[in-house]
């Protein structure tokens, strides 16, 4: 009885035609680029190498982090004589990107960020531009916190918390010679959250250094119901500016849509470089198709990276 039920349930689970085509293209591409076969490595040798590399990386990270924070602390000391660290974003026992919307925490964070922004603005020489920005920002306190929300950068050893602006700087640094071409042009593919939506709250961004994939998550409210809007990218990074242009054109041109058991999935670009999922926070209030479309149109938009974008120029 159970066996039959189980078989029936999984008979339905088949890879879609779209997935098969996408995978085939991926395999062809991988083969064309002459990927190297994995070399057999003895377990002890691997463990030894990993532990050695891990120790070296940990020491390096400690040194770099210490110098970064010392330098940053000094910079803010010069401006204001005091420095509030990013730790103020989180209460003592709060986990990052907690499932609990934590209204109070976000408001507190926003207030803290606002304070810091004002400090930075008052210490700067670029008065007129900053004043304008500051005015715009004060119109929408919540959005400020959205766009200053931290980023988790996972390099396999440690996680680093950054602002969006710092994250872009990191990507730029990784585009430099020495890091290969993995991150070249990646910042141009960043999806910048729009500033116009009052009820969309940027929750977290996660970047995995090893794979280059990154994901965003938003908590949004539509007609009193909370939904998650999750954006994932699979960076098949372009190696030339022309290839980049082509990807951007395709992103805006081709959107495939499909309904899933627990929400909706929109794929931008044929090969799924950008995928957006809309699904309810409580797992039950699945929106109808019209509502899902409306949520997507209201709460999401693609923007190309622009160094002048005020979203990216905000600092703690």
């Amino acid at each position: 009885m159970f066996e039959e039920q189980y078989r029936k349930a999984f008979d339905q689970a088949l890879p879609s035609e779209e997935l098969q085509q996408e995978t085939l293209a991926l395999l062809q591409e991988a083969q064309d680029h002459h990927i190297q076969p994995e070399q057999p490595v003895r377990k002890w040798k691997l463990a030894y190498t990993v532990s050695l590399a891990g120790t070296a990386a940990a020491i390096l990270i400690c040194v770099v982090s210490a110098s970064f924070w010392m330098d940053r602390g000094q910079k803010y000391d010069e401006i204001e004589g005091e420095w509030t660290t990013n730790d103020s974003l989180f209460s003592e026992n709060e986990a990052f990107c907690s499932d609990d919307p934590a209204e109070n925490t976000v408001e507190d964070s926003a207030a803290s960020l606002h304070q810091d922004e004002n400090k930075t603005a008052s210490g700067s020489d670029e008065d007129s531009d900053q004043a304008e920005d500051s005015e715009l920002k004060s119109d929408n306190e919540e959005n400020k916190s959205d766009n200053n929300a931290p980023v988790i950068v996972n390099n396999g050893e440690t996680k680093t918390y950054l602002s969006l602006a710092d994250f872009v700087e990191e990507l730029e640094a990784m585009s430099a010679p020495g890091f290969g071409t993995n991150y070249l042009y990646s910042k141009e593919l960043l999806i910048i959250p729009s500033l116009t939506y009052e009820e969309a709250r940027f929750r977290c961004l996660y970047l995995d250094i090893a794979s280059g994939n990154y994901s965003y998550s938003y908590l949004i409210t539509s007609e009193g119901v909370q939904y998650y809007l999750e954006i994932r990218t699979e960076l098949t990074l372009p190696k030339t500016a022309d290839a980049l242009s082509k990807i951007l054109e395709n992103i805006s041109a081709n959107i495939t849509f499909r309904k899933e058991e627990n929400g909706y999935r929109y794929s931008f670009e044929e090969q799924g470089e950008v995928t957006v999922r809309v699904y309810p926070t409580d797992g039950t209030a699945i929106p109808d198709e019209e509502t899902a479309d409306q949520i997507l149109k209201t709460h999401f938009s693609l923007h190309r990276y622009d160094p002048d974008n005020p979203c990216l120029n905000m600092t703690y």
């Binding site: 339905q12 986990a95 499932d99 988790i152 996972n154 996680k159 994901s215 998650y228 058991e261 627990n262």
Partner: peptide, 17 residues
């Protein structure tokens, strides 16, 4: 698991008819 908390619901019910 390495993400402090995953992007919501890492374990989602699969598509079922």
């Amino acid at each position: 698991c390495r993400r402090d908390l995953p992007l919501e619901q890492q374990m989602l019910p699969a598509a079922s008819p």
